[in-house]
Design a protein around this nucleic acid. Structure first.
Length: 116
DNA sequence: GTGGTGACTGACC
DNA sequence: TGGTCAGCCACCA
């Protein structure tokens, strides 16, 4: 039995809800799921995201500073950066520029519009 | 069951 | 956004 799938599944759902040209942080997702201190689990979920049937835009999930800490796990070395730049997000040296502008907060965007 | 590891964060210096 | 420390929980051997 896997009851933890629920938590992971939520992470994937939120990640897929990230709109085009926007990014969010592990902590934001974790907090939205009620596990602010379990941001690591969000990252771990992203690690397993490649194992999911539905692809998860993990490239839109970065750490709080806007650093592409997880780009190492993508096929290419700069694939993650390329994907973000393709969406209009400026990325320099693995760091997202104008993070506040492109940052997508699930707490606000999904406040009452979407509930699990 | 136990212990090491991890795509993090917040608090502190 | 320099550095360290602790917390959190799922996965794997």
């Amino acid at each position: 039995m896997k009851k933890s799938d629920n938590f992971f599944d939520k992470v994937y759902q939120v990640a897929r809800l990230i709109p085009y040209g926007r990014v969010t942080s592990y902590g934001a997702i974790a907090k939205y799921l009620g596990a602010a201190k379990s941001a690591r689990m969000v990252g771990w979920a992203m690690n397993s995201s490649s194992n999911q049937k539905e692809e998860v835009p993990a490239h839109r999930v970065v750490n709080k500073k806007g650093l592409l800490t997880g780009k190492h796990h993508f096929d290419g070395t700069n694939l993650m950066q390329q994907l973000l730049e393709n969406e209009g997000i400026v990325v320099i040296d693995n760091q997202i520029q104008d993070l506040e502008t492109v940052f997508w907060n699930p707490m606000e965007e999904l406040n009452s519009n979407f509930k699990f």
